[in-house]
Design a protein around this nucleic acid. Structure first.
Lengths: 189, 189
DNA sequence: GATCGATCTGACCGATCGGTCAGCATCTGA
DNA sequence: TCAGATGCTGACCGATCGGTCAGATCGATC
């Protein structure tokens, strides 16, 4: 590593592990997961590729750790949705997903465009089921194609556009997305 | 190549070139552009990788040819939008984009998640400018953040969800998307 | 001062990628 | 009959990928 703390002070600089996570987040956001190599991350941190693989078992482990908080909130949302039905489930799903998107928009942006492939990995397998239930709840009338289409577009649109929202403050983004979701989804009678 | 026409008949089987295009479209739709190798395409056609590169200068050329009709329609839409302003531009943009998405949803699905990287290629550079103008027109009030957010989500959502619409007939998909766009976008006073 | 675990490095591995190339059939037109 | 264009193949290339490994460095502990 480069000079860490000119004097003998202990813990002057954050751990290399944290630097790797931060660097990976930056690069994933710019070039996507597959578009970022371990060498890219190592170069940004200023260490060797082997050092990255000393702190993380493999490349997937870095992404998994970055996404863990967002995935946790998604699972919690799924359980809250399951406790409701009809219009209540739609409201919980809509507001909950907006909260999730606002809070973790930077993390969601890391997956930009790689949802389908990444979701096929065993580590993310359950997320696919959760998102299907999310779409059902958002649609309100899952058997009505137009309602499913609206839910799909809203879900995919917010997820995919998260990368563009990085500079918008929470208190501005949240009401805008909430209003959009309420307008776009078909109401449950 | 495999046996082409048991008898001596001429042109019994479609050209290998067309088979390559069709196979590439199928594989790109399943695994994305970067997730599909020339070897994958060759394997599906039943020819060698070198045969693929005999018919196409490189991998990009295959995607460019697959996307050419959709890109043409997008450019035409851009010109029609430029001829209007305010509420009229918003209506032209919304209806035009829905038409484009319905007509070319299979082609748009090929780009699933690879928009950002692919758009940085010189061949697709102008598309980025077009989509920015499209967002402005859809937003109606480009200076109002909530309006831009709605336009962004609708545009990204429809583009990203196109892959799920393959089996929905045009006459069902079009009115559903049109109604969604009209509900979701902020009206221009 | 010897030991030991934590941290990190450079060299290396096999696999895969997009792409090139010389040459082999096959067909066609002179 | 033969020359040339067309279509295609297998072998090969350099680059890059994720990942492994033996060993160097170093601070803390006994």
């Amino acid at each position: 590593m480069l000079v860490r703390g000119v004097t003998g002070m202990a813990r002057v600089v954050p751990e290399t592990r944290d630097e790797i996570l931060a660097a990976a987040a930056r690069r994933f956001a710019v070039s996507g997961y597959r578009g970022t190599s371990l060498q890219d991350i190592a170069g940004e941190v200023g260490c060797s590729k082997a050092a990255v693989l000393y702190h993380f078992a493999n490349k997937d482990a870095i992404l998994t750790e970055l996404m863990a908080p967002a995935i946790g909130m998604l699972q919690a949302l799924d359980e809250r949705i399951a406790a409701h039905s009809g219009a209540a489930a739609q409201r919980v799903a809509g507001e909950g997903f907006v909260d999730l998107a606002v809070r973790f928009r930077r993390e969601i942006a890391l997956l930009r465009g790689e949802f389908p492939e990444l979701l096929q990995q065993p580590a993310f397998a359950h997320i696919q089921r959760i998102s299907e239930r999310l779409i059902e709840a958002l649609a309100g009338h899952p058997e009505r194609p137009a309602a499913r289409i609206a839910a799909l577009v809203v879900l995919a649109g917010i997820s995919e556009a998260c990368g563009e929202f990085a500079d918008i403050p929470d208190e501005e983004l949240r009401p805008a997305l909430l209003a959009l979701v309420r307008r776009a989804l078909e109401p449950v009678d």
